[in-house]
Design a protein around this nucleic acid. Structure first.
Length: 214
DNA sequence: TCGTGCGCACCTG
DNA sequence: CAGGTGCGCACGA
């Protein structure tokens, strides 16, 4: 934890156009960050911390660390969603998907949702029920009632997900079970379940299905 | 070199 | 099978 927050991290105001005379609120930062993310995504690239910093610094003259700080704050605040994908962190606009409504009802099974949340959170030491809940609230519009609230549903779902081996419990936290969800393994498991294999060759076909386009 | 654009492979639902 | 994601590379300024 780097301490000195009150360091001289002021922008190098050489050009007036580069400087914001206003007191840049966290809300403004979130806007900038979301803009950056949109831009990067439109370039089909990963919105990583580095790229987001870079994109913002093209318009605002702040030190990278300052940008990174505000990015973190935005994540905490919930205006930016941090996800773990393909081995690295990415950031996305929650608004893009919050149209997804999650209506908590009696029979509803949140196993899949929980599993996905744990995977996308990608926390090294596992994710607590708390952070899972937070993540789901950020990525969905949750409709709940006093009898059927998200937290309760999650408790059940987590339990089921663990027993189904979708996720692994480690004390108070949960981790994604990459073995259970490994595509290759899954194929084999499914195959050996249904048929009793002699079609391994069949699954082994190369990509000779290349279709000429254009 | 730097910013942008994009084909395509890869996942996941 | 559809839709999202991002690597790797090519292209123009």
């Amino acid at each position: 934890m780097p301490a000195g927050v009150v360091k001289a991290s002021l922008p190098v105001c050489q050009s007036a156009a580069m400087c914001e005379p206003e007191e840049v609120s966290q809300q403004v930062w979130s806007t900038w960050i979301l803009e950056a993310i949109r831009k990067i995504r439109s370039q089909k690239q990963r919105p990583s911390v580095e790229r987001i910093c870079h994109a913002i610094r093209q318009h605002h003259n702040y030190h990278e660390d300052v940008v990174a700080e505000h990015l973190e704050a935005a994540v905490k605040e919930g205006s930016v969603l941090k996800v773990f994908n393909k081995g690295q962190s990415s950031y996305k606009d929650p608004g893009g998907m919050q149209s997804r409504t999650l209506k908590i009802e009696k029979g509803l099974d949140l196993t899949k949702v929980v599993t996905k949340a744990v995977r996308e959170l990608g926390e090294r030491d596992g994710s607590s029920l708390k952070s899972i809940e937070k993540y789901i609230r950020q990525s969905h519009t949750v409709e709940e009632t006093a009898e059927n609230d998200l937290k309760g549903a999650l408790r059940m779902a987590v339990k089921r997900a663990v027993s189904r081996n979708f996720i692994l419990q480690d004390g108070k936290t949960f981790k994604y079970n990459y073995n259970q969800h490994n595509p290759a393994l899954r194929k084999k498991q499914e195959a050996s379940k249904r048929l009793s294999g002699s079609c391994e060759d069949f699954n082994n076909l190369p990509k000779c299905l290349k279709i000429e386009r254009k």
